[in-house]
Design a protein around this nucleic acid. Structure first.
Length: 277
DNA sequence: ATGGTTGGGGGCCAA
């Protein structure tokens, strides 16, 4: 199955293209977003780490890109999520998973009734111990709240975002080297497995790209040559409830954006759906 | 085992 998205056109009618991207400051990278939108023509774009309060969100720039629906939930300096859509959305809301009141979740409903959840899971700091490191505790609490929220829910839904966890051995450059590194510890992966079983969810990306194949969506800024070293992790995900798996048409990871200037350390994940009834 | 870089915002903190 294709790993590169067909640019712009080339999609059959009824196909909806959804992209998710941790942009690491939407204001700094607004030109990169515009370039990505021009090249890939997503119908819905979910952003994380926008790092901007809502009254300073660059809504006009997104309207000029063709997104009539601009939904943002941000705060000064940190976190922040946004949904940009060419389709009308309703039932806009957010939830306070983890209980800190940080801006890490935004949800809205697509015209066909499917719920879309955009989430930015806490990174969790450096030490994988909830006692020694409150940021790791917050990450675990956030995940537990997500699990409780989705357990037993029947409604069709799409969950996207920066989960800050790379669950599979092939989702990291070295499983052995990262076993005690936050994002790939057994405890975090177990919680992500619980979350996946809760709805239950289905991994739209591994639906097309075999789990045996290495796949990353993030490369650290701290590598002098990210492309040559290729020490990446798959932290960004698109999940769908099981009933929507049959509507999946294609996925792509826009790895080339990691080389743009200035680059986010994350790259977009793109999923095409056939959402005709 | 450590340090490496980026972003926001004006201090270091977060990633």
């Amino acid at each position: 199955m294709a790993k590169t998205a067909k640019k712009g056109g080339g999609r059959s009618p009824g196909t909806v293209r959804l992209a998710t991207w941790n942009i690491n400051s939407v204001r700094l990278r607004i030109e990169s977003v515009a370039r990505f939108v021009a090249e890939q023509r997503p119908d819905i774009l979910c952003l994380q780490e926008t790092k901007v309060a809502d009254d300073k969100f660059p809504a006009l720039a997104f309207r000029e890109m063709g997104f009539d629906t601009v939904l943002a939930r941000g705060e000064k300096s940190y976190n922040g999520v946004a949904i940009l859509s060419r389709l009308p959305l309703d039932d806009v809301a957010f939830e306070n998973w983890g209980g800190k009141g940080d801006c890490r979740h935004l949800t809205a409903r697509l015209p066909n009734g499917v719920a879309l959840h955009n989430v930015y899971v806490p990174a969790g700091g450096d030490i994988p111990d909830a006692e020694a490191n409150p940021k790791f505790g917050h990450k675990l609490a956030f995940l537990r709240d997500m699990i409780a929220r989705f357990r037993g829910r029947k409604e069709p839904a799409i969950l996207v975002g920066d989960f800050n966890i790379a669950p599979l051995e092939t989702d990291v450059w070295s499983h052995k080297a990262l076993l005690n590194v936050v994002s790939h510890t057994a405890g975090e992966v177990a919680l992500l497995d619980d979350l996946m079983a809760a709805a239950p969810w289905h991994d739209a990306v591994r639906h097309f790209i075999p789990p045996e194949e290495q796949l990353y969506t993030w490369w650290s800024y701290r590598s002098p040559d990210w492309a040559a070293a290729d020490k990446g992790r798959r932290l960004d995900h698109v999940w769908v409830t099981k009933g929507l798996a049959a509507s999946l048409r294609n996925v792509a990871v826009a790895r080339e954006t990691r080389g743009w200037n200035p680059a986010s350390d994350h790259v977009p994940v793109i999923v095409d759906f056939d959402l005709t009834p």
